[in-house]
Design a binder for these strands. Structure first.
Lengths: 197, 197
DNA sequence: TGGGTAAGTTACTGAATAATAACATACGGG
DNA sequence: CCCGTATGTTATTATTCAGTAACTTACCCA
C-alpha cells in the first residue's frame, strides 16, 4: 500500500515528458530511446506507449512543455529602463538555459528538426517571439534616447539573439564548463555599446 | 573501356568523403547511412567498407577534409587595415559555410559529438584557432587606434565568432533561405561599432 | 466488497543498419 | 598477354529500435 506501483495517466505522462527533457540534455535528443527513457522512469519500455501513441508525440509534448516553462521564466519583467530590461531578458533566458540544457540540445539537433516538423515549428515560433520582444525593447530604447536613432532595431535584436544562441552553443559544446550567466552579462554589456546614442 | 567500373582506392576514398560532406548537409549527419552514401556514389553498401574500416573513420576523414578546405579558404588575406581584415575573415568564413553547409550541420549535431570524440576535437580546435585569429586582429586594431583601448580583444572575438555561429544556425534552421553574406556584413558592421575608439 | 478499467507486464515483430563472409572480375605490371 | 590483387558484388548476420499483441493486476467506485 505504501509503495504505489501505478500512477494515474496524467502524472505518468508528465513524468515521461520531464524525464525526456532531463535525458535529452545528457544523451542527446536523437539518442534517447524509449528503452532508456523507460528504464530511467522505472517502467517497462512498452509502458511508454500506453501514454503516447508514438515517440514523435513525446517530442511534441516536450516542445509544449518547454514553451510553458519558458513563458513562465519571463513572466516577471521588473526593470523600467529599456537597457536594464534588455539585460534582464537576456539574463533570464540564459538562466533558463542553464537550468534546462535540453533546450539548446534540442535546438541544435538537426535530426529532430528533420524528423519532427511540429517540434521545429514550436522552436521557430519561440525564437520569433523572442526576437520580436527584444526588437520592441530596442525600439523603446531608441525612443527614450538611450540608443542611437539610426539603429535598426531588428538588426540589433538579431545580434542579441545570436549572442544568446552562440553562447549557448559554445557552452553546450564545451560541456557546460563556464559560467553562462557571467559570460553572457559581460558580452551583452559590450554588445550594447554598439547600440548607444 | 570508356565506362570505368572501378576506381583506384585513393580516388574512391576521396569520393566517399566528398559525398558524405555533401549529403550531411541534406539529410543530416546522423541520418546519413552507409546505404544512402553508397547509392549516391553508385556502388554497393558493403563496398564502402573496402575503403573505411568503420563508419566512424569516414567522419574522421570528413573532419580532416573540412579542416583542409577551411584552411585553404582563408589563405589569401589581402586587406591591410585590421577592420577590413576582420570583415574579410568573417566574409570568407560565411562564404565557406554557404558553399559547404555541412559544416554547421555537423557542428550542430550533438549526436555526432557524443559519438565521435576525434571529430569533436577537430571542430573544437578549428573554433579555437578561429577565435585566436580574430582576437589577434582585434588586438591589432586596438594598437593602431581604430578600436578603443579598453576593449577586451578576447571578448570582442567571442562576439564576432558568436555572430558567425548564430547566423549560420539561423540560416541552417531557416532552410538557408536568406543571403548569409549580405546579412553577415550588415550585422558585422553594426557589431564593430561597439569596438570603435 | 467485488468487478471493470486503467496502467502495467512479458513476449514478440518488422524495419533499419553497420559490418562480415564468400565469391567475382577489372585492370595494371611483369 | 595473362596473372594476382585491388576493388567490387551478393548474401547474410547481429543488433538496435519503435511499436503491437496478449495477458495481468492494482486501484477506484458503485
Amino acid at each position: 500500500m505504501s509503495t504505489r506501483t501505478r500512477k494515474p495517466a496524467s502524472e505518468r505522462k508528465a513524468e515521461i515528458v520531464d524525464t525526456a527533457i532531463k535525458m535529452a540534455a545528457i544523451v542527446g535528443p536523437d539518442r534517447l530511446t524509449t528503452e532508456k527513457l523507460a528504464r530511467e522512469i522505472g517502467i517497462s519500455q512498452p509502458a511508454i506507449f500506453r501514454h503516447f501513441p508514438s515517440k514523435t508525440n513525446i517530442w511534441e509534448a516536450v516542445g509544449e512543455r518547454i514553451c510553458t516553462l519558458m513563458g513562465e521564466s519571463l513572466r516577471q519583467d521588473i526593470p523600467n529602463d529599456p537597457q536594464a530590461r534588455l539585460t534582464h531578458i537576456v539574463t533570464a533566458q540564459l538562466a533558463f538555459i542553464q537550468k534546462t540544457p535540453a533546450v539548446p540540445a534540442i535546438l541544435f539537433s538537426r535530426e529532430l528538426h528533420a524528423e519532427n516538423e511540429p517540434l521545429r515549428k514550436v522552436f521557430a515560433s519561440l525564437m520569433a517571439a523572442r526576437h520580436a520582444r527584444i526588437s520592441e525593447l530596442v525600439a523603446q530604447g531608441i525612443s527614450t534616447g538611450v540608443f542611437k536613432e539610426n539603429l535598426d532595431s531588428d538588426d540589433a535584436a538579431y545580434l542579441v539573439l545570436t549572442l544568446i544562441q552562440g553562447l549557448a552553443m559554445r557552452w553546450s559544446l564545451n560541456k557546460q564548463n563556464f559560467d553562462l550567466l557571467a559570460e553572457g552579462k559581460r558580452l551583452l554589456a559590450l554588445q550594447m555599446t554598439a547600440f548607444k546614442a
